[in-house]
Amino acid sequence: MNQRDLELLSAYLDGQLNSSESTRLESRLNSDPQLASVLTDLRATRSLLRKLPARRAPRNFILTRKMVGQNPPLPRAYPIFRFATALATLLFIFSFGLNSVGHLAASQAPVYGMGGGGSSAESAQPFSVAPAATEAPTEQAPSAALAPAPTQILTPEITNGAGIIDTPSAKAADSANGINPNQPLAQAEARSPAPLIPSVWQIILAVIAVASAILMVLIRQLSARHWK
């Protein structure tokens, strides 16, 4: 038997031959027992396959929206909150960066600009001591250096917060000791300059970012619940 006959028999079994092909094959089947035997075998094989029990699906294969990547429709205002969150977060980070840069610039400024103007103790010390040393022999320094106590007059009207009068002799004494009365405040200001972005703005930005993010989560949850 050849391949062509096998295909004819298989198609005949399924009723796929036209009437003339069927008639020709049937006459051959009547005269050729081997061909008829093959047809019987093929029919039995097909019958066996058709009797194979059909299994039920072990579970339902229904799809969920998550499986197919469908997301719940979000309100039209949602992008506004997303934009606000992103912008506030960026500005918040930017404000920190800007303040850090400003602080760095302020701390480095004396090195390149005022020289002995004295933001740091190391640079201020030689210049504050040297004038005192040179001026000491001239006029007020000796008295201030030798007897600073008598020059400090404690009177309620003109004393400062520490109860010390800023008299020329007192200043001179401070100078002689290498101390400038205004220097500690100036140094403090130089060490921690006022931030470029005030803290209150940073707090506002943080609040906006967090509040928008929370609103986004709530909107998503509500949309998903409503969608189900």
Binding site: L6, E7, L9, A11, L42, A44, T45
Partner: peptide, 16 residues
């Protein structure tokens, strides 16, 4: 399809 089905049935028959 016809050709593959005929040959598949034949092979199955031999195997069975």
């Amino acid at each position: 399809i016809k050709s593959r089905l005929a040959r598949a049935r034949l092979r199955l028959r031999e195997c069975l």
